[in-house]
Design a binder for these strands. Sequence first.
DNA 1: TTAACCATGTAAAGCGTTACATGATTTC
DNA 2: GAAATCATGTAACGCTTTACATGGTTAA
Lengths: 178, 178
Amino acid sequence: MIENIILGFLMEKNLTGYDIKKAMEKSTNHFFNTSYGSIYPALKKLESAGHVTSTEEINNGKLNKIYTITESGRAQFREWMAQNSAITMIRDEALCRMFFFSFLENDEIERQLNTYISELTAQIDMMRGLKSKYADYDIDPWKIKTLDFGIDYYLHMRDSYTKIFDELKEKISGATHN
Amino acid sequence: MIENIILGFLMEKNLTGYDIKKAMEKSTNHFFNTSYGSIYPALKKLESAGHVTSTEEINNGKLNKIYTITESGRAQFREWMAQNSAITMIRDEALCRMFFFSFLENDEIERQLNTYISELTAQIDMMRGLKSKYADYDIDPWKIKTLDFGIDYYLHMRDSYTKIFDELKEKISGATHN
DNA sequence: TTAACCATGTAAAGCGTTACATGATTTC
DNA sequence: GAAATCATGTAACGCTTTACATGGTTAA
């Protein structure tokens, strides 16, 4: 996975490991991100497989190891792109806890849902901010679409948890008034 | 994570490792599932930490190692339940590919979206089937809610991908007719 | 001058899956 | 009699994160 994503970034231009990490932070962060501890070894592996080559430059006194994708790397990337995606499991931590909510008091459940909804709102705001910045200079519509997808995703999550929160509130007030 | 989920299952009744796996398959499968290779070592770890105890029985000639949660296990579980959930990243494989869709031909993109939408539909149908079975005998409303959440989640995913599919179709036909 | 950032990498540890190994019982 | 299911466990492997290690430049 990570190797194919790296190849994808290198399809467009030559980059250093550091550049790749920064590019991910700017564009794929909400659905794919990884650490230097994964990127550098992956680049080494790609190089020994012949999918990338590297040239070293010194810019401003700093070493720059610039990676270039090879024809075999392009072939590998295209092969990966042609594969069907398997549907992904949810694995949402909040959902795991919800499964066991019967072990919590209602006010604690309320508190948790509330906190989680706030965090989702923060995430949505952050991503909307990103989108407004991107509108100017990133033209690839598919990359914009992944951002929109992410915003819609978190909006849906917030709606779902808000609905659950409201239902709980109603149930509590119903129980108190009777 | 897995250890806390196991403790959660043991909060309700004593179970063997095998039982836990089967219980997960029936109830948490769409947002949490794991293999025996994770469950048995986790149970061992929980036992040496004093969070569970085990008794061995032979039923129908088969060894049954039945695990019981201890007071310290209950405390550990409650502590985990009281923590706030961190929001989870998407990490959807199809979304990773979409990011690089500009490297694919339109008909290949169409094919992939179509396949993925079908798989989402199959998942939705499967979960709806599960829900209709559950309606009878599982009473905990929170557990039902995680199922509903999952169904809504996959419905939202299907809507999102269908919207993208329709937009692409429209763009193609628009381009051909001019 | 100090913090932040640029830049590359390794090592340890954790987590999880897959495959392997074993053997009994039950159902078709 | 074969296949499926019950039942427990280990070993190898892979992937990823976190922490560590190093050292230069730039901006406050």
